[in-house]
Write a protein that binds this DNA or RNA. Structure first.
Lengths: 205, 205, 205, 205
DNA sequence: CGGTAACCGAGACGGTACGTCCCGTCTTAGT
DNA sequence: ACTAAGACGGGACGTACCGTCTCGGTTACCG
């Protein structure tokens, strides 16, 4: 996605430069449509009409509507608040998971879920999602885990991906796959289980 | 979905009865298309053409292509092999998860993933998925958990949904959300973690 | 049309006889639909539904919707009022033409016009129209012409079809072809012209 | 119909201009279908397929198949040959009527009759027919009448519409309504009658 | 008086065409 | 070179009716 942003090399870049206002209008229109009718309301024609922009201008910079929506979400997505310093890491992980749930329940989250849905049948979108959404978020959460490990609350040799999947997995599973509600109590239990399984043994050195 | 199958009560069933052959041809065609081109090859027109059936016959019984694909998958989905009697429950859960991964990697699984994708923006489909796919499978895996609990390998008070989400969640999360590969080693670690967290304490009675 | 009414010969007619109530309900429903939405509202399905009758019962007795509408009109069409005895024949012809215009402007007439329209591309309907509508009406008007001839108001050798087409033709032409309005004054002039052209010469014997 | 052809004013005409070739291909395909299977062969899908054109290109410029057929006929219809200078006006009117009959008997005429039929139940088509076919033809024939009037063969005060309806009406009536054949002799008699009724009186000044 | 033939309701079925939505490409002209 | 505008070929949608075909149930006639 957004392949054309990174020009092939140091081409001299002649002609009129890209209008930043156009990009802004497109992303704003996309955001509106996303929150009004979900991803399936984000058609190229609707975005172009709403943004007062030609379809050409969309296709010039994005390969398809999914890329636009993804760009919109990733450009505007709230970064994960760290909310550091309060309580132990178990509590901080709980807060992070609960913040994630709140995000997924918001209109934004609706868009994210729609993108997750769409990428199941769109490999290019899947890769973009991975690069622009999944990995950056994982990098952020991984930092909290490193702190917890350094603080001796998580066992030293723990594979960070296994740990993080163990706590985020059940949450997304309910939200995306099974459709069962995700309660705070459920999150507590999942985090507790992770701390039992991966927590540093008290006597261990 | 398939609302019309279960008549409200003992309606006298007048008129020409539904042809089972038509239903069969439709599901067969759907299955073929599903394995050839994934869910996005399952268009109503393609299914009708392949099945030698009128489009109206499809719309008479299913509201849209997703419902057809779902019916196809749920009617033909390999039930979870129990493979009982071999080894401890930890090993049996591992085998179940690995079978799930194999299923999700198959053309069938491609269809299931596509349905999971589509249901993110289609509440009716979401409900059907829940009823026809998610709950039946959960019921099956829950039985294995009960056996494990009775056998004293899982702690008595464990909430079955929490336990099952704790092992299936990470798997689906990788497959559906993050897109990271799911290795056998990953499954082993996740199951191990669950048995640490929810396993019966040796000395406990 | 209504081919099946006249059984091939004196077939013994076994089995349940045709229900007259069904025919009545069908024609009544057709009449309603005709006056509500014109001929194009008279679909087989709509008639059947409105009449509380199976489509089969329609197709058993009529080959298509046009035949039903035609049957409806011809069975219910107001016969041409003779209004005899008042005034000369010129006046009587004027009254007949004006009555015809009133008929064509009524919902019934809408149906007749629709049938005239439909028969342009349906030879079978054209023939039925000719037999069930056109010729009977022509026979009626011809009688008035005969009286006028006998009374010495129309020249003796006049071809009745030429005379009648000369007065009905302009009327229908405006209504069916050109779409121009048909005023009473127009009718007066046309009838006058016909009486000039075909009227008996005063001195002639 | 064809509303969009005549832009409201001097709109700057942005965007890709309408391809005249597409219009041509559509009308040609329509003409073929019209002469092969009559108006009912002119389906939007058939026209599009035959013309090698997308259905959307049809719907972009015409509201329905009737409008296309009408456009086809009006764009290609043989103008009424004047055949001036030969014989008196009575003879010239006869020739015009006979040419009209020949036209109505041709495949073109079949199309015109089909349109006359269709417009009985389609007000928009009726208006278009009136504007694009009826009035232009009437304007042409009216000119001949004017000449005849100036030449002193038709009485001075004659209402042109009454006269023209008096000669064209019976012709169309037979063709469209009653279905009786239109012979040359019939035409002769009708024209004669009109000249008796509306002809200039020899001694009149 | 019991068969049975034709009626009637209901509605499934294969099919044609409809008119619409949106896609992604393209051709203009204007800036 | 970028933009707005929009025509174009195309694919699929979901709907409306068509005319045919089972079904089960219901009469009237005829043997």
């Amino acid at each position: 996605m957004r392949i054309k942003d990174t020009a092939p090399a140091a081409a001299p870049r002649r002609g009129r430069p890209r209008s930043p206002e156009v990009r802004e209008r497109i992303l704003a229109a996309t955001e509106e449509l996303l929150s009004e009718g979900g991803f399936q309301a984000v058609t190229v024609e609707a975005v172009a009409a709403r943004a007062g922009v030609a379809k050409t201008s969309l296709y010039r910079w994005w390969p398809n509507r999914a890329a636009v929506a993804l760009d919109c979400v990733s450009a505007r997505m709230t970064p994960i608040a760290d909310e550091a310093g309060m309580g132990g890491f178990r509590e901080r992980f709980r807060r992070q998971l609960k913040a994630t749930i709140r995000l997924l329940n918001s209109p934004q989250g609706q868009a994210i879920l729609a993108l997750i849905g769409a990428k199941q049948t769109d490999p290019a979108l899947a890769q973009s999602y991975s690069e622009q959404i999944a990995r950056p978020r994982r990098a952020q959460t991984r930092m909290l885990l490193q702190q917890a490990t350094r603080a001796g609350e998580i066992a030293a040799g723990t594979d960070p991906d296994v740990f993080l999947d163990a706590i985020y997995g059940p949450l997304y599973y309910r939200k995306v796959v099974s459709g069962e509600p995700v309660t705070d109590e459920f999150i507590d239990r999942i985090v507790d289980a992770a701390f039992i399984a991966f927590g540093a043994k008290p006597g261990a050195e």
